[in-house]
Design a protein around this nucleic acid. Structure first.
Length: 216
DNA sequence: AGCACGATTAACT
DNA sequence: GTTAATCGTGCTC
């Protein structure tokens, strides 16, 4: 059976907690009869106006408005003139924090993902934040989408728990002009040996352990 | 109204 | 390892 849609209480916690616990969960795009899905294997946390690596550092703008809304919504933004990136909003309403989804291991609908990615196959399919969005067809239309709303075409459900021994942390990617300590603070989380590359993917098949902090 | 730049990717040396 | 592609956004003038 497929897991239940994670509810708002999962996202209504500190962004670092959510970024860690999203590892191993399943990101699903679509509806009950048509699913594209994969295991999340890399995330990054962005925490409020005080985090100079976070888009919220400049205050609320039209672009980052979603991040200031309630937890459990998507914050999707456009960058480098061609790429869309997906974040999941965390923490209480009006507190601007979100988790950037950087990589996943495809599990369902891989053929459609390949088509959306221009025929590319293998690790390059979903091993980057913009690749993941392209593979799942995520763009401006999904900005502000509530992942916790019944019927919404994007959600998180239980996957396989990732033990601490398999979690690698490091500095966030691409913050070249961000001052320290924000540039180097270890708020990037990934599953050991995965992303980049996605080789040795989390085993497919039924989940054998409950997700961390299962929602209810 | 103009401009510098970006939570990236893919192609190339 | 280096760099072009490409344009919305937010800041400066």
């Amino acid at each position: 059976m497929n897991g239940a849609r994670f509810n708002r209480s999962f996202f209504d916690r500190p962004v670092l907690t959510v970024a860690r616990e999203l590892l191993g969960t399943r990101l699903v795009r679509g509806e009950s009869g048509h699913r594209l899905a994969g295991r999340i294997v890399e995330t990054e946390a962005y925490d409020g106006t005080g985090d100079l690596g976070c888009h919220a550092r400049a205050g609320r703008t039209a672009r980052n408005a979603s991040m200031w809304g309630p937890p459990g919504h998507a914050y999707v933004y456009f960058t480098y003139g061609m790429h869309w990136l997906l974040n999941l909003v965390t923490g209480p309403d009006a507190y601007p924090a979100a988790v950037l989804l950087r990589a996943m291991v495809p599990e369902e609908g891989e053929g459609e993902m390949v088509a959306r990615r221009g025929g590319r196959v293998g690790p390059a399919l979903t091993d980057g934040p913009a690749k993941l969005c392209q593979a799942l067809g995520i763009g401006s239309d999904q900005d502000g989408l509530d992942l916790c709303a019944p019927g919404a075409p994007l959600w998180i459900e239980a996957g396989t728990a990732v033990p601490d021994a398999q979690v690698v942390t490091g500095s966030r990617v691409g913050l070249n002009s961000v001052p320290e300590p924000w540039k180097s603070i270890p708020w990037r989380f990934r599953v050991r040996g995965l992303a980049p590359g996605l080789r040795g993917a989390i085993a497919h098949g039924p989940a054998e352990a409950p997700p961390p902090q299962p929602p209810r």
